[in-house]
Design a protein around this nucleic acid. Structure first.
Length: 525
RNA sequence: GCUCUGGUAGUGUAGUCCGGCCAAUCAUAUUGCCUUCUCGAGGCAAUGACCGGGGUUCAAAUCCCCGCCGGAGCACCA
């Protein structure tokens, strides 16, 4: 019985069962598990990037997951830049917009964008109130000394400073009267807590280096992530927090502050780190930045760079990355993302749109070879393969024959035949290809391969940039009429994005030399 | 050392809360076959996993105990 027939039968006998089945099917489509205590229309989540550079591929996971939940629950997506360290994690002024662009490419738009460095006064106000509630004290102990006491479960001698003094010293911090390292504000938690990570943690510290954003450059007293993030999550109404396992103690720390304020803590989910196969570059913004500075990567969108900008330039759609990221689920263990899964998702999305063209590669171990097609006047003067095998309505391309170029490994031994795709069967005669008026059945019979080819004249000198390196070759003339930024399939080579038709020379070794007619970026097979 | 947290095929995931319909789902990968024109596309098929050992039970991926192996935190970083 066919599916449709079964459904009809079931609808007649037990319509309520059919509804149940449909409900199950719908649940199955949910790749991600449901959020705990999530209320339709009332879910608020945030991505909280540190703006220190454009995003690497792993960063796509947060907007992918938050965006997916936002759609499921009709919720809200906040992008909050946690830029509270002007020194060791110094923000990069270009990164704010770069990250928003990356989010847009992934197909999401934050409902709200905020910057922690705009909100210092808010954090100060909450610190004052926390002090008034007896939840914090100023502490001038050097970090190492406090650490020693803390590990022994011993309190700082400043722990019981009277509230007026604490308040006074905190105002002095705000006014910038201490140097870096001179004074901190600590949250009073439990100095004997079994988990040493939770004992009297620092909420504010002094930093001498001015913040790169002009509006925040005068501040010297900066909140630590756990304080700032805890306050902001509450103030912005965040209901569900997702963060990495490296922050798994954050919620426990922040709960002390929430308890002082009598706030309710949001739901928290943790996930592990993402690793990528295929790349030999670490998934780390600072590593990528260093490689760019050293000239080993041409930029954030270099095909070797494991960045969002790079896959974007290669013609991979943001939605394909989102698919793969949500397929990773929410497990707390570390996961390896196979790039092949991103490629498979992208292929699903681009295959139907991507028209087909030929690119003959000219590689050191498999050079392009040039041969004339000779005939007895019966040969057509051009090949006409379809633009897309599934869409005959898109028409054919015209590839002039005459002198042609093929890849050496596609050239049969002398005396053997090969089928030039879209043109016809030829025999390799040593220094020429002799046209044979053969039927396509010779291909069906199995001893003639179908290969791609381009004419010598009018083909485009092409530089194809791949993750493994640059490849040169010749693209068929029809490619010249395609718009840049289009994703096409070079048959038997793979999907590529046409990047530019008049690239300037660069000093990159083996990079564009200025003579190319086309530079394309390789996406995947 | 202290404190968290995890372990299902090559990879990711479903199932674990409430034991049976799980000789275990889906995707990807790999391999093979097919195609009047892509042998790196497409279609079809095959391959492949419950960390180990005990226990409870008629029945364990699922519950209990003991191991083994991972990951994270203990910053005046985020």
């Amino acid at each position: 019985m066919a599916e449709s027939e079964r459904r009809e039968r079931l609808a007649a006998v037990a319509p309520e069962r059919l509804a149940e089945l449909d409900a199950d099917d719908e649940a199955d489509e949910h790749v991600l598990p449901d959020l705990p205590n999530a209320e339709e229309g009332a879910v608020v989540m945030r991505a909280a990037p540190n703006p220190n550079g454009p995003w690497h591929i792993g960063h796509a996971r947060m907007p992918a997951v938050i965006g997916t939940y936002k759609e499921r629950y009709d919720g809200a997506f906040i992008c909050r830049f946690d830029d509270t360290d002007p020194e060791t994690k110094r923000p990069d002024l270009d990164a704010y917009d770069a990250i928003l662009e990356d989010i847009e490419y992934l197909g999401f738009e934050p409902d709200r964008v905020i910057r922690a460095s705009d909100r210092l006064e808010t954090y100060y106000d909450h610190a004052r109130e926390l002090i008034d509630r007896g939840g914090a004290y100023t502490c001038d102990l050097p970090a190492a000394e406090f650490s020693e006491l803390k590990n022994a479960g011993e309190p700082s001698p400043n722990r019981n400073t009277d509230p007026d003094t604490v308040r006074e010293e905190f105002e002095a911090m705000v006014d910038g009267e201490y140097d870096a390292g001179g004074m901190t504000l600590r949250v009073k938690t439990d100095i004997e807590h079994p988990n040493p990570a939770l004992r009297d943690w620092v909420a504010f510290r002094m930093i001498d280096t001015p913040h790169p954003r002009e509006t925040a450059a005068d501040y010297r007293c900066w909140p630590m992530l756990d304080f700032q993030s805890g306050i902001d999550d509450h103030l912005t109404g965040v209901t569900h927090i997702i963060r990495g396992i490296d922050l798994q103690d954050s919620a426990k720390r922040q709960r002390f502050v929430y308890d002082y304020f009598d706030w309710e803590y949001p739901e928290v989910l943790h996930w592990g780190h993402v690793q990528l196969d295929e790349y030999d570059v670490d998934l780390s913004t600072s590593t990528i930045k260093a490689l760019i500075d050293a000239g080993e990567l041409a930029g954030w969108d270099d095909p070797h760079a494991p960045t969002i900008r790079s896959v974007r330039r290669r013609g991979i759609r943001g939605a394909a990355l989102v698919d793969s990221m949500t397929e990773l689920g929410m497990s707390t263990s570390d996961v390896d993302l196979a790039m092949s899964s991103v490629y498979a998702n992208n292929r699903d999305r681009v295959d139907d749109d991507a028209n087909r063209y030929f690119l003959v590669r000219d590689r050191e171990d498999d050079p392009a070879v040039e041969l004339p097609v000779v005939d007895d006047a019966s040969a057509p003067d051009a090949g006409h393969p379809p633009r897309h095998p599934d869409h005959p309505d898109r028409g054919d391309r015209t590839i002039p024959a005459g002198r042609v170029v093929v890849e050496s490994s596609d050239l049969p031994p002398a005396g053997e035949r090969v089928w030039l795709k879209g043109f016809g069967c030829v025999r390799h005669d040593g220094d020429a290809l002799a046209f044979l008026d053969a039927d396509i059945n010779v291909v069906r019979e199995g001893d003639v391969n179908v290969v791609h080819w381009v004419p010598v004249d009018e083909s485009l000198r092409t530089l194809l940039r791949t993750v493994e390196g640059n490849v040169r070759g010749y693209a068929e003339p029809a490619v010249a009429a395609v718009d840049v930024d289009t994703v096409v399939q070079f048959e038997r080579v793979g999907f590529v994005r046409l990047d530019t038709f008049d690239a300037a020379a660069t000093d990159e070794p083996d990079g564009p030399d200025g003579d190319e007619d086309l530079v394309a970026y390789y996406a995947h097979p």
